[in-house]
Design a protein around this nucleic acid. Structure first.
Lengths: 366, 366
DNA sequence: GTCTGTGCTGGTAGCGCTGTCAACGTTCCT
DNA sequence: AGGAACGTTGACAGCGCTACCAGCACAGAC
């Protein structure tokens, strides 16, 4: 005999089945596919389970069925506000499903991502959510070979592994620059940190828009691999000013940098938007509250996470979406920091969030 | 016969054992307790596993050993910056262990927490990290009965379930008020949002400090159950000003609110700190970068998460900490927003983060 | 009346791993 | 020399659940 058996009050499926007067396998089916049972047995098993307080043993289920009910999520950062919104969307969507989330942090390293992917795949996840479209060749091969649904989030691009949900960072950046052009700005600087693939594509969008207008100059671009922060925004802006004092606008690759630029302008007594306009990216909550209020490109982060998880769960359950690639678009939220240069046009300083105009643009139509 | 067997190239422990020329159980031990093997077999199993690319099946392990290698984490919010720092600490600490993190969001509801706790406990987690000390009676009973190590994080208090790591929000708030008193402020307002237990204790600390000085007035306190935001900071401050125009300082229960107050002051052309001083809570990164730089109470969020997970893993592995209750303390970081009222004393406006003075205080000694 | 199809149910045989215990070889005592 | 003590190894028997297949009852088709 192995070990001590029938340990204290442990409720197994067999106990439930016995109380309900059915075979264990029938009870098992009740939990996975109740419709397959006759109504009579269904209610019997149901009440037996409730009476005994039965909780299925997930490990045994996973072992026997050769698959888990785990959704693996690979994101590059836990600090970034952007990802916390996405994550919240994912967790919310998974909450009332039978799937649980297994989260891992790649720290913006595609090698780390590859390692984690190998780990995840070995446990046969029910589905996978991965960030972005820039995997290593090896990772890509693993994803292609994986026998579970996969959603790539944060951006859209060619050759999806499976499903994809995001927006075009390139188009979003172009829209931001187009907005600045429309307000009469010409010498527009770019400030970027971390320079992960998505920030790089925002830079690409900026460069192409500036080139299209014949206004591109390399010295208008200041970037760093350092992780983003408000303080860094001020520092990068300082560099930019030193290179090009005549600049009349700055496009910041994210809102933290934009806030840093705002504070730096305040320190230097540079008037916004009269002397320099500011546009950020993501439209975090504080942008509408700053003084002056800060223009930004709104992205649908919560919705992205939520929809990704919902699509994934649907796909796992056999309901594949009609369109595997979903463009969530973006909106340029025009605020005081980028009003037209003529100061008489500047909205009166008033309550936070006042005077927001919105320009909605699905990606791909800038 | 059951189902199709020996599915394509699936590497099991048995295969590794066979290649290494040992029994499966010996190979099993290699992965759990390598020191128990002779050096010769250890290297044989090691190279066999590497050669075959063996990855253990966690479900089988969990089923056979009757325990999982999952650490359950219950936090009240995924949005809050505070928790993303804590989480990062937890994930970092778990990364090189064999434990994986199972995260759930209680959304600041102790009923939801109870429900999730029941769910977690049913899966026999290796350990548990829970937020705060305000559980339902039922939750508390489950925690007391749980046969795994438990760490309560974010604050310290009497009657720990098991281990506890945090600091005294009460003392931290008192220290912030003491700092404002020292700068000559007397009519100090309190602005708080969400009013979860920890914010409530900060309020309690504020009230006690004010009462000790004979300065407490109910109308100096403005709170709301609404989740915190920068915009809300401005709105609450507006309320406060309407009630008590003569106020000379505001203690904000968190930094988002403080930033909102800063912007609102800017909108109203109230000079900081000459007319009103501001002190925030948590010392998020932007506080050092704002104009003026904002005083805050620094809390060790990353360290808290990291230490909690480390302690928990050590305890799971049988190395219980000497002191089960760890006070991580706090520091009042004095910046421009709360400099002494005489304006000649005000630090020159200079680079971000300049002129930080620090006052370190372990909780319990204010 | 026989045959086929459909819906529901149950028996059998594992999924891949580890707890337990026994057994072995070696060293160190007395 | 005998035996205890230790370190190392292996055989066995499951952990709790589900895949697979078979069987049964009943309905409809021929």
């Amino acid at each position: 005999m192995g070990r001590k058996r029938t340990k204290s009050g442990k409720i197994r499926l067999a106990e439930v089945a016995e109380l309900a007067g059915v075979s264990p396998i029938t009870a098992s089916r009740f939990f996975r596919n109740p419709e397959a049972l006759s109504v009579a047995k269904r209610t019997r098993v149901d009440s037996a389970a409730k009476e005994l307080g039965y909780v299925p043993n997930l490990a045994a289920r996973a072992l026997a069925s050769q698959r888990t009910e785990v959704i693996g999520v690979l994101i590059p950062s836990l600090t970034n506000n952007v990802f916390s919104d996405v994550l919240r969307g994912i967790y919310d969507a998974s909450e009332n499903s039978r799937y649980s989330i297994q989260l891992s942090n790649t720290r913006y390293s595609i090698l780390q991502e590859e390692k984690l992917l190998r780990l995840f795949l070995a446990q046969k996840p029910a589905g996978l959510i991965v960030t972005g479209i820039d995997q290593t060749t090896e990772s890509r091969a693993m994803l292609d070979a994986a026998d579970c649904p996969i959603v790539q989030i944060m951006e859209i691009g060619p050759n999806p592994v499976d499903m994809m949900i995001g927006f075009s960072h390139y188009d979003a950046a172009r829209a931001a620059i187009a907005h600045l052009f429309a307000q009469g700005h010409r010498k527009i600087g770019f400030v970027g940190a971390r320079m992960d693939p998505r920030v790089q594509r925002r830079l690409d969008g900026y460069v192409s828009a500036m080139k299209d207008a014949g206004l591109f100059e390399q010295r208008l671009v200041v970037t760093t691999a350092t992780p983003t922060s408000v303080t860094l925004g001020g520092a990068l802006f300082t560099d930019l000013l030193a290179r090009e004092p005549g600049m009349d606008a700055v496009f910041c690759a994210n809102d933290d940098l934009a806030l840093g630029v705002l504070f730096e302008c305040r320190r230097r007594e540079i008037a916004i938007p009269e002397q320099i306009a500011i546009v950020g990216f993501n439209d975090l909550e504080f942008m509408a509250s700053a003084v002056p209020t800060l223009t930004s490109v709104r992205t649908n982060r919560y919705e992205m996470g939520n929809t990704a998880a919902t699509m994934l769960i649907d796909a796992i359950d056999g309901r594949r979406p009609e369109h595997p690639v979903l463009d969530l678009g973006f909106k340029v939220i025009e605020r005081q920091s980028s009003s037209a240069r003529r100061s008489d046009n500047r909205p009166a300083v008033s309550g936070a969030g006042a005077a927001n105009k919105m320009v909605a643009l699905p990606s791909g139509h800038d």
